[in-house]
C-alpha cells in the first residue's frame, strides 16, 4: 500500500543541522548528513509494542521472587532472588548500594514498561491518555538509567567468582529474567516517541 508522504521538519540532536524527512517511510533509517547521527527510524505499530511490554511485565513479577542462583557449601545452602540481593544489601547496612542496584536493575525497567502501557493502550484505542506529556517526560528521563542488562550479565560473572566456594547452580529465575530483558529491549526499540503525537495512523 502506498502511503501519503508526511514531511517532518526536525534538527539533528548532535550537531544542530535542520533537516526534514518523510515520516511515512517505514523502510529507511535517516542519518544526519553532517555528523552521521541516526535522525529517524520508523517505530513499530503500537499493538506490537504493547504486546512486548506486556510480556515483559508478566515475566517480571515472578522473576523478582524466583531464585536465580543456589550455592551449596559444607551442607549449607543459600539461594537468592533478584529482590533478595537488594534486601540483603540493605540488611548488611549499605542502603546506598542497595538503592543503586534496586533502582537501576529492577525498578526503572519496570517503571518504563508500565509507562509504555499507560501511554500506548489508550492510544491504541484512539483515546488520548491522561497526562500524556507528563508520562512521556518521566519515561524519557528514565531511559538512560535502566540497567537490567548489566544486572543480568553480572550473574554469570559472579558465578565464576563463587565457583571456588562451593557447588553452584543456576535457577529458573535467571532464565525468566533473560526473557524479560529480551521483551524489554524489543519494546524500547520498537517504540518511537514521536508516534505519540502523530498517531498510529501511519502504521495502519
Amino acid at each position: 500500500m502506498k502511503r501519503e508522504p508526511f514531511l517532518y521538519q526536525s534538527a539533528c540532536k548532535e550537531c544542530g543541522v535542520v533537516l526534514s524527512y518523510d515520516k511515512s517511510d517505514t523502510y529507511h533509517h535517516y542519518y544526519c548528513p553532517r555528523c552521521g547521527a541516526l535522525v529517524y527510524a520508523s517505530g513499530e505499530r503500537f499493538i506490537r509494542v504493547i504486546i512486548m511490554a506486556l510480556s515483559a511485565l508478566i515475566a517480571f513479577f515472578p522473576t523478582l521472587f524466583m531464585p536465580i542462583l543456589t550455592l551449596e557449601m559444607a551442607d549449607q545452602t543459600v539461594s537468592t532472588t533478584l529482590l533478595g540481593v537488594v534486601r540483603q544489601i540493605f540488611n548488611e547496612g549499605n542502603p546506598a548500594i542497595g538503592l543503586m542496584v534496586g533502582m537501576t536493575g529492577m525498578m526503572i525497567p519496570l517503571l518504563m514498561m508500565t509507562l509504555l502501557l499507560l501511554m500506548l493502550i489508550p492510544l491504541h484505542f484512539r483515546q488520548r491518555p491522561l497526562h500524556l506529556r507528563a508520562l512521556f517526560q518521566i519515561y524519557s528521563s528514565l531511559r538512560r538509567w535502566g540497567m537490567a542488562e548489566v544486572y543480568l550479565i553480572s550473574i554469570p560473572v559472579s558465578m565464576i567468582k563463587l565457583d571456588t566456594m562451593g557447588d553452584l547452580s543456576i535457577d529458573p529465575g535467571f532464565y525468566l529474567f533473560f526473557y524479560f530483558l529480551i521483551c524489554f529491549y524489543i519494546a524500547v526499540l520498537w517504540f518511537n516517541p514521536d508516534d505519540l503525537w502523530h498517531g498510529d495512523a501511519l502504521a495502519h
Partner: peptide, 30 residues
C-alpha cells in the same frame, strides 16, 4: 561526536562490578 556516542553507550557497563559485589553479598552468607 563519534566519541560522545561511544561513551554514551558504554557508560552503564562500568557498574558491572557493583552488581557482582551485590550478588556476592547476597550469596555468601554462611
Amino acid at each position: 561526536v563519534r566519541l560522545f556516542r561511544l561513551i554514551e553507550r558504554i557508560g552503564k557497563w562500568s557498574l558491572l562490578d557493583i552488581f557482582v559485589v551485590a550478588i556476592m553479598i547476597a550469596m555468601v552468607q554462611f
